[in-house]
Amino acid sequence: MTADTATTTRYRGERRWTPRNVLLVVVGLLVGALTVFPLVWMLSGAFKTVDEVNDPALIPASPTWENFTYVFTQVPFARYLLNSLLVAGAVTLIALWFHSMAAYALARLQFPGREKLFAAIFATLLVSLPVVMIPTFLVIRTLGLLDSYAGLIVPAIFNAFGIFLLRQFYISLPPELEEAALVDGASYWRIYRSIIVPLSRPILAALAVFFFLANWNAFVWPLTITSDPDLRVVQLGIALFQQQYASDWNYVLAASTVAALPTLLVFFFFQRQIVESIKSAGFK
């Protein structure tokens, strides 16, 4: 080992184990433990009996699947999952389609009022859901979309964050790609479909995860516009399930585990795209 290598190794070791870095590691471990503990408790409780859940001192027996069987046989939980999947999937696909087109127009096309339009869209990020819930409800009621899938899907399509993030990504793309395509006679629609969309796959995948999770976990809006039991989404179904089985936490935890599995799987399979989108777009 040379002197330079030994000095570098010693420097890295000293830098790694400084009191500040040790404190950061301890804080990170505590935050990680606090984050993982509710999930572990939910998973363990989903496979226990009601007595084992209510009495932590009781030695648990072998895991049981009866809780999941009860959830799917005594309540239409599969229907709730299907409704959430349909709504979240439809919103994600439609939102990505329209948001990408709007972001490309705001990033590349020149037309009067472009910057003002983008500023108005961006300003909607400052408006919270409770502020627009009543006007949106009145519009949906006027259109006759209460107690319908359209009423659950259409208001959730627009999201200023998606347009903003995609626009920033499109601005960072080299304009030479489009210029070469224009010289070859390609239209803006052909450029968007053949060049922009393929290059946008990482960030579109990340936005798909965000949109899907947000609509899968939607609760307030479905509660506001739906009263038909056949249109209940999974989060609303769990809330009603919890009211009915308030003392049987094992059933509630089993239902929550089933509802959480799709979100965990989506994040697990698309975590690389999320990281790549953050690096490529940079949130700048």
Rank of each mutant, 00 (worst) to 15 (best):
R272P: 03
Y188E: 14
F270N: 03
Q74C: 04
T142V: 01
Y80G: 12
R20Y: 13
I171F: 08
I94F: 08
L199E: 02
V40G: 00
I94H: 00
I163S: 03
Q271D: 04
K279M: 13
S187I: 01
I94C: 05
F72N: 11
F47A: 13
W41H: 09
A120P: 05
E66W: 09
P198V: 05
V53A: 10
I278L: 09
F270V: 00
F211M: 06
G151L: 14
P63S: 11
A281V: 01
Q244V: 00
I278A: 09
I225N: 00
Y104S: 05
A102L: 07
R20Q: 15
L125P: 05
F269S: 02
A246F: 01
A156T: 06
Y80E: 12
G282Q: 01
V50K: 14
S128W: 06
M42D: 01
V131Q: 00
I225T: 05
F137M: 03
L204V: 04
P229D: 07
A206F: 00
V71D: 13
A239K: 08
G13S: 14
A119V: 08
S44F: 08
Y70I: 08
V91F: 11
I140Q: 04
T226M: 11
V275W: 04
V71Y: 06
F161T: 12
L240C: 00
T226D: 08
L34I: 12
T92C: 12
V234F: 01
A107I: 01
V183L: 13
S194V: 12
V139Q: 06
D184L: 04
D51G: 08
A150M: 13
R141D: 08
A160P: 12
A281F: 01
K48L: 15
M101T: 04
Q168V: 02
T226W: 06
P174M: 02
A33Q: 09
P229G: 04
Q243P: 02
L96V: 08
L138R: 14
T142M: 06
P63G: 10
E178L: 10
Q273K: 01
S194E: 14
P229V: 09
F169C: 03
T64Q: 14
L146W: 01
L82C: 10
T73F: 13
V31H: 02
E66P: 10
N83K: 12
F158S: 11
T35D: 06
P198R: 07
P60S: 14
T8W: 09
L39V: 15
W65C: 09
Y149E: 00
F77E: 11
R16C: 04
R20N: 14
S172V: 00
T263H: 06
A181D: 09
Q235M: 12
F169Y: 15
F68D: 06
A150Q: 14
H99V: 00
A57S: 15
A33T: 12
I59W: 12
F77D: 13
L261I: 12
L85Q: 08
Q273P: 02
A218M: 03
R108W: 02
F210T: 06
A88Q: 09
D51F: 03
S277K: 00
P19K: 10
V91T: 10
V50S: 15
G144S: 13
A103M: 09
W65F: 15
A180C: 12
A180E: 07
